[in-house]
Amino acid sequence: MESAKAFRVPRRALWRAGAREASPAFLFLFLVFVVPLSSLLLRSVTDPVLGFGNYEHLLSDLTYGRVLLNTFMVATVVTIVTLLLGYPVAWLLVILPTRVSRWMLAIILLSMWTNLVARTYAWLVLFQRTGVINRMLMEIGLIDTPIPLIGNLAGVTIGMTYIMLPFIVFPLQSSLAAIDPAIMQVAAISGARPYQVFFRVLLPLSLNGICAGGLMVFVMALGYYITPALLGGTSTMMLAELIAVQVQSLLNWGLGSAAAFILLAVTLALYALYARGLGLGRIR
């Protein structure tokens, strides 16, 4: 005991990190993140006149209602499709031998980190009237005339599903990897059929991964700008586009920032749900 004490370093001698070390980053984010966002919020109730006129306008006008509907519809469909496609992939990543899963992981990461505009450009070309997809569908006789894939929600949904897939695979993978395989064996030994093992054991046990990944994708899809703007049309506008158009083309800052804060409020509410349901630690 005595000798251990002798080797203890005096508190003063060690450099102690404290709040002071965080101040440069804090000041920077305060100035270039908090201040701009707050003044935007302020603008939604002061521009052009003081009051909640912008919010009233947004929520009462049918055109804007349609934009909200489009946004939530696309986000919902994208979330469901990415879950359906991502779950088997996450499962395979867990059960396949490393030499195979390593390559799958590499493909997922490559797609995730490839430039967003480049990926959207690829879909833009593939989706043309005379593009590869239409020609292929016509060749195998599924359709007689080219179907429009651009300027409507079909293209937007496919393009966004593509971009969101990696974000659902990783949370699913970590929740599937955390399940003790013995539980599955016990279920099988006790006479459960494979589909019963899946629906009554595996699926409920991975529910937190499904919720985490699904919520994450849903929130990201709500605020997506690039893909809907390039693949969608004017009649299928989504919320992020509406915000951008109001501010950039129409210089209607009041309405644009009001729409931005509806989006932000929904986003923060969903993240709060996420944090509460799963514990803050998971976000890290």
């Binding site: 966002l37 997506y224 931005a260």
Partner: peptide
Amino acid sequence: LRAFFISPMIVPLVILAIALYGF
């Protein structure tokens, strides 16, 4: 503070973009 430092990841980019643009 830790949550604050990662909060820019949560805000939809288009909102951050117009906020910065105005600022």
